[in-house]
Design a protein around this nucleic acid. Structure first.
Lengths: 227, 227
DNA sequence: TTGCTTATTGGTCGCACACTCAATAGCATC
DNA sequence: GATGCTATTGAGTGTGCGACCAATAAGCAA
């Protein structure tokens, strides 16, 4: 990749090229930030002239908005898959919380902070942010409603509980660019504590990382305490 | 002001000029955002050539960091005055919460989002953000400790409670650039609810805006329910 | 093979930014 | 009123950005 001496033009299907551009931009958004999505930068990543990016996205802001939407949607699908065959709501929620801490989630938090700030100046991005907030809220709310219907959760208003959980997660993620470490456990686990209380679950019901991807489950020795 | 035809130089005391520059930058930061602090912009506001700003702040990043620090410190002093003669901790905390909702606080939330994001790229700003986070945390923690000492609050660890309150406020403020309105009361009052629970206060103890500046107390008819 | 559509290029323009520095002119001091 | 210090100016440099557009060539269809 990135063979700069290449002069040969590679002509691609417009839809494929467009998707390629959006994917590259989404990757840059997650790794370095939305303001690093420039025509020159994305063109360089794809070994293509900046003018081509302009060809597909007449205004650069459109690309930024699209890149955020794609990145946020992908992350949501990773955290809260819409389809989870054979998984109980409690299990899915626990898995969700297990993924909302650690370095991996910091990148997502950074992206949200980035988007929420930049949307102050970029109307198109602001629309996308609102759209994704709705998507995240909707996905979590659906899970809570399902849990209530199944009798696993018990709450007066699942929609309110949904927002409360997201507010706490936003608050915890707000510091992703400054201090990640040395936070008291009572703070780190605020979201879980809140969810367990609001959903009338026994303490600890959401705590142990019941994860279907145990490759990064190493390390935390606290998994032994059954409380 | 801003008489552009003015050619006459006004020579000021360096310390005063420097303060003037920082104040102007802090105002821009609050009203329009930290990235709007440019040499040109501040120079224009003060009717002075951009080079002069460079003279006082060899690197523009220094000015941005200083502006944020000043703005954040001023806002903290407005929200949680260090000295509050004759005010009980409960009263002061209630006043604090009364000020952490509404349009006025949105500007502060925006500034924090702005700073937290921009600190990703600006080390000097990152230091200032950390410093101000410490200042806000310290100020609130001091209030909680005082309340515990006076017997008004009862909590296992005031420092943990402090962080929990701030996390919720950060979460609520995260959306300052998108959706401000139509949030359920159970969400809007999350910080108060948390504080009352964690400090073992009766429900509603922190709710009514016991405010010494009642000029904006109009509107919310819910102030009549004593519960 | 020939021709045509259009994806792709290369080059350019204007703008806004931070930064540099010699020249200038307030203003306090003598 | 003259002098010296230095705050302030004016002009210029270089960089990176989005946007624009005519020229070019890839690859499909005839």
């Amino acid at each position: 990749m990135s063979s700069r001496v290449q002069r040969k033009r590679i002509r691609k299907d417009p839809a494929a090229r467009r998707a390629e551009i959006v994917d590259a931009a989404a990757a840059v958004a997650l790794a370095e930030g939305l303001e690093c999505i420039t025509l020159r930068r994305i063109g360089e990543d794809l070994d293509v002239r900046p003018g081509l990016i302009s060809h597909y996205f007449p205004s650069a802001e459109e690309l930024v908005a699209e890149a955020f939407g794609t990145a946020a949607r992908n992350e949501l699908d990773g955290l809260l898959p819409a389809a989870a065959p054979g998984r109980r709501p409690t299990e899915r929620l626990a898995r969700f919380f297990a993924h909302t801490t650690g370095e991996a989630y910091d990148a997502i938090s950074r992206l949200w902070i980035n988007a929420r700030h930049l949307s102050r100046y970029r109307p198109l991005l602001r629309d996308r942010v609102a759209e994704q907030e709705g998507a995240w809220r909707g996905r979590l709310a659906a899970l809570l409603h399902e849990g209530v219907a199944d009798g696993e959760f018990r709450t007066a208003d699942p929609d309110v509980t949904t927002i409360q959980i997201l507010v706490v997660l936003d608050g915890l993620g707000a510091h992703a660019n400054t201090d990640t470490g040395n936070r008291p456990t009572a703070v780190t686990r605020m979201a879980i504590t809140l969810a367990e209380r609001e959903l009338a679950l026994p303490a600890g019901a959401l705590a142990p990382p019941v994860d279907d991807a145990p490759e990064d489950a190493a390390g935390d020795g606290a998994a032994t305490d059954g409380a």
